[in-house]
Design a protein around this nucleic acid. Structure first.
Lengths: 185, 185
DNA sequence: GTCTATAATAGGATAGAC
DNA sequence: GTCTATCCTATTATAGAC
């Protein structure tokens, strides 16, 4: 159960944790009822659309978080190296050094068309954001695009491998590699 | 429904497709009954342990496939470049150029301890196999280890991104990158 | 080995009182 | 806004005939 009980925002924090830990199909309303401390009927008061709406709201929350911690930095101004470091620190925090899975990985299966559309949109924005960061550091367009794709792949893949191995080092190694080579010509 | 109907092997091929498309929690026995053309009771004849045993059997099938198409090559003899190409072709076929998800990604969530152990074991074997291939091409141990990890991450990550974007190019780009740089000093 | 039928449970969702 | 109680359906699983 979260600190901010009973507000939609407080519930959403719990929902995000559950959904990214178990995936859409792996989360049950009974379980959500437990972790939030709210009865099922109360959950339907906050999310009349049921589990599907909860999933969409979680994607929306993740999108908001990315907006303020990642997109705004990637698409903003300032030293490329500083912006990169800021984004990587945010990601390390969000994924808890590789202990937590990514909603972009676990939500599409079973999540319905709206969730899948949200996943696609977020991935595209991440790609263009990283591309822009690389480009603003003087890296040529085609190369910047390739680096952005490799970066998204590296984040997602390392989280998958961390989950499979029960280790955080693949993610941490990946972050290290990005620091070393993302902006290097 | 598969060609080899009613044999455990034939059923398993269908099971693999379902499980990797929907994940453990996303697959229902009704659905399995549909795609195999067998009644639920018949499924329990082949897999007395139910859904959990089916999942373990699928991991086992995937393991067998990897054994003959990937592990045996990575751990075998021959020109490194030839072995690499052989493995990459096998993977492109298995994942249908990026259209199919990997069980190592989608099965751990909900799959139970046995499935998770199988995932871990397979990932470790892939890591040591790719490391060995790199090492046999004259790449130093630490570098070979890092390349192996990046390779597994690249495969898993690109499949996640393909699924999210509804495109096969991330996976195909990743394969191209491996061909270009995995064995390059 | 496969079927029909059925049990037992869990899941998502709603009604209506407070 | 939250609760208890309930509904309906889907799900996993089994029994027993053929």
């Amino acid at each position: 159960m979260n600190g901010e009980r009973s507000t939609r925002e407080g519930i959403l924090v719990d929902l995000l944790e559950e959904f990214r830990a178990c995936g859409f199909d792996g989360v049950s309303l009974s379980r959500i009822s437990e972790v939030t401390g709210l009865g099922k009927a109360s959950l339907y008061h906050h999310f009349p659309g049921g589990k599907g709406e909860m999933a969409q709201a979680v994607m929306s929350l993740a999108g908001d978080w990315l907006e303020s911690h990642v997109f705004s930095v990637l698409e903003g101004q300032g030293e490329p190296a500083v912006r990169l470091e800021s984004v990587l620190l945010a990601l390390e925090d969000f994924y808890q050094q590789g202990r937590k899975s990514c909603v972009l990985d676990v939500m599409p299966l079973g999540g319905g068309p709206e969730v899948q559309a949200a996943v696609k949109q977020v991935m595209q924005r991440l790609l263009s954001g990283f591309e822009r960061l690389a480009h603003s550091a003087g890296i040529k367009k085609a190369d910047a695009k390739a680096r952005a794709e490799s970066t998204l792949i590296g984040i997602q893949g390392s989280l998958v491998v961390c989950r499979g191995l029960g280790s955080t080092s693949p993610f941490l190694n990946q972050m290290k590699a990005l620091r070393k080579s993302f902006l290097t010509p």
